[in-house]
Design a protein around this nucleic acid. Sequence first.
RNA 1: GCUGGGUUCGUAUAACGGUUAGUACUCAAGAUUCUCAAUCUUGCAAUAGGAGUUCGAUUCUCCUACCCAGUACCA
Length: 581
Amino acid sequence: MADRKTRVRFAPSPTGPLHMGGVRTALYNYFYARQHGGDFILRIEDTDSNRFVPGAEEYIIEALKWCGICPDEGLDANGKLAEEPSLRNPHAPYRQSLRGETYIKYAKELIASGNAYYAFDTAEELAARRSEAESEGKTFTYDHVTRMHMRNSLTLPQEEVSRLLEETSDWTIRFKMPADTLVEMDDLIRGHIEVNTDTLDDKVLWKRADKLPTYHLANIVDDHLMEITEVIRGEEWLPSLPLHYMLYKAFGWTDTMPHFAHLPLLLKPDGKGKLSKRDGDKLGFPVFPLKWVSPTGEVSRGYREDGYFPEAFVNMLSFLGWNPGDEREILSLKELEEAFSLDHVSKSGARFNAEKARWFNREYLRMKSADELAGLLAPVLESHGMQFASCPVGALCAGADFAGEGADFENHIFTAGYVAKAVAIVKDRATFVSDLWTAAPYLYIAPKDFEAYGVKAGPPQDPKAPARPVDPRTKVVDDSLTAPFIGKDVAKFWKPEAYELLPQIDAFMKDYNGIFSVSKFGEALEEFIKGNEWPMGKVMNCLRLTLTGAASGLGIAEIVTTIGTKEASRRIAWALERLGS
RNA sequence: GCUGGGUUCGUAUAACGGUUAGUACUCAAGAUUCUCAAUCUUGCAAUAGGAGUUCGAUUCUCCUACCCAGUACCA
C-alpha cells in the first residue's frame, strides 16, 4: 500500500453525451494522475443495458480529446475502447458489459463467504411491499430486518433454494449488510464520516433483468483489479460510500482499498439542483462540451460549436470548485496539471456562470496572435461568401493602394495578410472568433443599405414611389450584412452638410502622402478637420456611417488604414450618390 | 420522511484562531476618446441565525434554518 503507483480512473456511463460536470471530473482525475506521475484510465460503465445510448461512448472519447486529455490506459491504437489485453492496456476489456464472467465470479465468492445471498422476490412482490409501506407513510427497504421476511436464500429451505437456482434464472444477488456496525470513512475532501449500517439496505449486486452486475459490484471489482489508488468522483456517490467500504471489507481488500474524494456538484445558475443533461438550451448556454444529436434527432449545443476554445473551456471548468491557492486565473492545461490539488477543492456545490465562461474565452482570444486568429476566422469568412488568395497576385495587389493591400472588395477576395491586419483591430471587441466578423463586417464588404435604418438626407420621399433601382454594388453576398447597421438613430449622423464635407475629406485622403499608420494618418485627418473648423465628432460620425453603415464601431483611422483610401473613396462616392437628392 | 453532505459580497472563491474579511466576473461612476468597445482609476457588495469554547472566532463544538444529494434489479 505504501508505494503503489498512482492510478485513477474516469468511469462514465454511456447513457448520453458527457455533460460538463462529467468533463470536470475527468479533468480533475487527469490532473491528479499527471501530478503524481500516475496513470489515468478510461473505463466505460455500461452495466445498464436499458439505458445504453448508441454513440455516447464515441462522444465521450471525442470530448476528452477535444479538451486535450488522453487516457494512459483504456484506448487502443485506433482511439477506440480497448477490448483485448495488451502491454498498454493490461486490464482490457475496459467496457464493463464485456466483463460479466469476472463479476459473477466475485458475486458468488461473496455468497460463499456469507456476505451476500440470492433473492427470489419478483418485481411485483417488491412493488407490493413498497406501496404497502407507503400507505403507512413509510419507505420499504430491503434490509437486515425485512430480509428475514422475504423470499431469499436466507429464509427459504436449502432444497428450495437449490431447486430455484437450478430451474430458473430468476434471481438476484443482494449484499448482506451487517447489522449495527459503525462504518468509519475518510474522504480526501470532506474528512471523516461515520455511518451506522442499520441505516443502510441490502443493495442488489447482480441484476436478474440483464444478467449484469450493478454499478456497486462492477465498480468495486474493477477498481480493485485495475489497482486504482484514488477514486475521484461526484458527490452524488457519497451516500454509496459506506456500501463500497463494506464491499471492500467483505472481499478482504481493505489493505489496497483506494482513497476516496467526492467532488462538489455543478449546480444550475439559480442554485436549484445539479446541472443536468436536460437543462441544455433551456438555460441559454451549453451543458455539453460538444454538440450532440440524439438518436431521436434532438440537437443539444456544445461549447466547441458555440465557439469556445478548448483551453478556455478547460480553464473555466477547472475553476468551478477548485482554485490554485493563489490569485492566478488563466492557466494552461500544463499549469493546471502542476497547480492542481485536492486540498483546494471546495466542499459546496458550484453554480455555473455563463458570463464568466465568456470572460475566459475572451482572455484566451486575446492571447492569440492576429495570424492565428486570421486562420481561425477564414472558415467564417468563407461562410459569408469571402474568398482567399495569396498575395501578391495580379490585380489584387497591383491596383490597390498600400493601405488596402491584399483586399479586393469588388470580388470579395482577401489575402491572409489583410485578414490578419483586420483581425488585429477588432480583436479587443471579440469574445469568440465569429465576433471578429460580426463586430466589423465592413472590413470585408461595403455597406449596402442606409435607408432601411432611417437615414434620410435628401428631401422626403413619397413612400408610394417605386423603389430605386438596385445598385449593382449592393449585390447581396450575405444578408447578415444588415447586422452592422445597428443604430436606430443613424439619421442624426447624416446631415445635409455631409454633401460638402465628404468630397473634401475624400480629396484629403487622396492627397495624403504621409506615413500611413493609424496614429499618423489619424493625426493628419484630425488636423485637417480642425483646420477647417468643422466639429470633430459630427464629421467623424458621419464618416463612420459612410464607410461602415454603422453608427458606432472602430476608429476612423483604423478603418481607413485597413481598407485603404481607394476603397474609402469608393464608399464615399456611393453614399453621396445613394443618399443624394 | 429517513440518511448523508453543504452554507463568506449577485456569482466563483481567498483568509487553514488574530486582516480595515482579499481577488476575479457582473454592476455603477470617473478618466480617455470621433462613436462604441477596449484600457485605466474608483466604488457598491458577504461570513445564514443562535448558543458555547477562547484573551480573541469566517475558522473549533452544539442547536436551528435553509440548500443539495441519496433513498431503483440507474449509474
